[in-house]
Design a protein around this nucleic acid. Structure first.
Length: 308
DNA sequence: GACCAGGGGTGCC
DNA sequence: GGCACCCATGGT
């Protein structure tokens, strides 16, 4: 939580907080990823400036993030926040942009990989933009199961606007994700009016209940340590299969070797990069990903970006 | 009206 | 563990 202190100048009366980012980092490339879908409801991006709420243990802080030099992150606080809270907001942003990850080991070989050399050059400085909150990641993963992304964003927006809270600033609403405490109290039919299937409602409410009782928590998962143990613990939960487990380990738990191999987006990107004319089989994917050795999550993320 | 979409559960072998 | 089958719902 404090490993980023050395990169941050923090004084309580500063108008801005600056975050030094490690090489390689390209703010615009990461911003382009965040802007991949106009239906996104968890933040606004206008003229290269991100505005969003960051939830710190129930305290909702509205911030703006930009980067005049495309390298350092500039954070402006639009809500009053104590110094400890500001530090936690910075830690959140640090994690959001995956700034603890040393990418040199990835670029070292990826620039020579026949499927990755193009994406790696085109998106140089891209990091896996994560979802630090476990409940939000799990919900997003389940919402996205077996439906097109456009509809998934619609579902998320309806879910957030019905059960989340908003801060209004200069006429705009900025949302925070619904808490698992509030979702744990719902019954599956409560969500049917926002076009969520009963099955998905059951999954999400069940997970909210596991988190509300403390049986499921990010720290608890991470404390298991071993990759396979964490994956098994996730898959044991109803509604979480191999794809969702690896998706969560990739975007929330920050395992660079997480690999959602069943992902349709990955399949389509590989179809294009491999020039197949059809989606690759699982065996073909296993074959071409042998060299990705421990960087499967980053390989997947760059391939996702490549299919545009 | 097919077919597809950033899958998962269940039952069977 | 691997496989077939069912499940829902909006987009195209």
């Amino acid at each position: 939580m404090t490993n980023n202190d050395q990169h941050v100048k923090l004084e309580s009366n500063d108008a801005y907080i600056w975050i030094e980012t490690p090489e390689p980092f390209d703010f615009m490339v990461n911003l382009d990823y965040l802007q991949r879908n106009p239906k996104e409801c968890m933040y606004d991006i206008t003229d290269g400036i991100i505005t969003r709420v960051i939830d710190i243990a129930g305290e909702r802080v509205l911030v703006r993030i930009d980067s005049p030099d495309n390298r350092k992150l500039r954070v402006q606080f639009l809500s009053d926040a104590s110094l400890p809270t500001r530090k936690m907001v910075v830690a959140y942003i640090w994690e959001w942009f995956d700034l603890s990850m040393d990418l040199s080991g990835f670029y070292e070989w990826a620039q020579y990989d026949p499927l990755l050399n193009e994406p790696v050059e085109r998106f140089y400085g891209l990091r896996i933009m994560g979802i630090p909150d476990l409940f939000e990641t799990l919900c997003w993963g389940i919402l996205g199961q077996q439906i097109n992304l456009g509809f998934a964003y619609t579902l998320k927006r309806q879910f957030v606007e019905k059960y989340g809270d908003a801060i209004t600033f200069e006429g705009m609403k900025y949302w925070s994700f619904p808490s698992y405490e509030s979702i744990a109290k719902l019954s599956p039919t409560d969500l049917s009016d926002i076009k969520m299937t009963i099955r998905k409602s059951e999954y999400i409410i069940g997970i909210a209940q596991l988190m509300a009782t403390g049986q499921l928590a990010k720290k608890k998962l991470l404390s298991l340590g071993d990759f396979k143990q964490i994956e098994n613990a996730l898959v044991a939960i109803r509604g979480i299969g191999p794809w969702t487990a690896n998706y969560v380990m990739m975007r929330c738990l920050r395992f660079p070797n997480a690999f959602p191999i069943d992902d349709v987006g990955l399949h389509l990107a590989l179809k294009q990069q491999m020039g197949l004319g059809r989606k690759p089989t699982k065996d073909e994917i296993r074959k071409v990903s042998v060299n990705w050795k421990g960087w499967e999550a980053y390989a997947t993320f760059y391939l996702w970006r490549s299919k545009y």
